[in-house]
């Protein structure tokens, strides 16, 4: 047996697995997205062409889902970046206990989103939760109901997401900051650069690649955000927090099990995520020079 032959035999199981678990569903769902089909009905897929896509792109409710997701992703990622980077700048210089503090800050990131959702529900609880109390609302009748008000629910999810994932940005920013060689700051001190000038011309450009990676990861995650929202609000109240993935879930696994339509929606999300990622990656390459 030739070497190539042996190599092929060894990689065959993986390839078969990959085809069955990834490639086939990917292609099959692409096919289904052009059909009317429900997995719980006995009827075979019925070819409808672009009808599903047309429905998605013309239905205001879908547009609303995308708008909510976009708003959520933008605000959440922006806050995470600012807070995460700020924390990293604070924890950059070692002080007594900074190691333990860093580890503690990272804890939220390690929890399961469902667990986080469950206890933030308790924290947000208008009568028993500590959140309103800390904000200074003591009268239950006038205090905000974070998860129950349409104007607040998305903010509540943002707060939890920021609490959970700012540490991730911090971690990457810390890695970026610690990779900046000291001599650059020494040279800058000799060159009589002010602290602000050093930050702008050395620190920021040097951490930018890692910061962009953090932002890229968080943006993709925000677009896919499901478990946290599901656990906190289930998409409600009304459709105030109905992100595209919540909608996708409802479409695919509730009521009619509209597999054809949900496949089409999944593809639309995929295209958007790829497009956004490409924008970031282009920025990233630019930042790396």
């Amino acid at each position: 047996m030739s070497d190539t032959r042996i190599v092929q035999i060894f990689i065959l199981p993986t390839v078969i697995l990959l085809i069955c678990m990834n490639i086939f569903p990917l292609i099959y769902s692409l096919f289904l997205s052009f059909t009317r089909f429900s997995v719980i009905s006995d009827a075979p897929p019925e070819w409808v062409g672009l009808a599903n896509y047309q429905a998605i792109l013309t239905d205001p409710r879908f547009w609303n889902n995308f708008a909510i997701t976009g708003r959520y992703a933008l605000v959440s990622v922006a806050l995470q970046t600012i807070i995460g980077f700020g924390l990293a700048m604070l924890l950059r210089t070692k002080f007594k206990g900074s190691g333990i503090l860093t580890t503690l800050i990272l804890v939220p990131m390690m929890l399961s989103p469902i667990v986080v959702a469950v206890f933030w529900k308790l924290i947000f609880n208008p009568s028993a939760g500590i959140f309103n109390y800390l904000l200074g609302f003591t009268n239950i009748n006038t205090s905000p109901e974070w998860l129950g008000q349409t104007d607040l629910a998305l903010w509540a999810v943002v707060i939890v997401d920021v609490w959970m994932w700012s540490p991730f940005v911090m971690l990457l920013a810390l890695a970026g900051l610690s990779a900046i060689p000291d001599y650059l700051y020494e040279a800058a001190a000799i060159d009589r650069a002010s602290a602000w000038f050093q930050f702008r011309r050395i620190t920021l450009p040097q951490v930018m690649p890692l910061l962009l990676i953090a932002v890229l990861f968080r943006t993709i995650e925000a677009f896919k955000q499901f478990d946290l929202v599901m656990g906190l609000t289930g998409g409600g109240p009304g459709d105030a927090t109905e992100t595209v993935s919540i909608r996708l879930y409802k479409l695919a696994f509730q009521g009619q099990y509209d597999t054809g339509m949900s496949s089409a929606l999944a593809y639309v999300i995929l295209v958007i995520i790829i497009a956004v990622s490409n924008l970031y990656i282009r920025q990233l390459n630019k930042a790396r020079g």
């Binding site: 060689p181 001599y183 650059l184 020494e186 040279a187 011309r201 050395i202 450009p205 040097q206 020079g289």
Partner: peptide
């Protein structure tokens, strides 16, 4: 070792 600003 020069200590030039590599990103500039």
């Amino acid at each position: 070792f020069f200590a030039l600003y590599g990103h500039l």
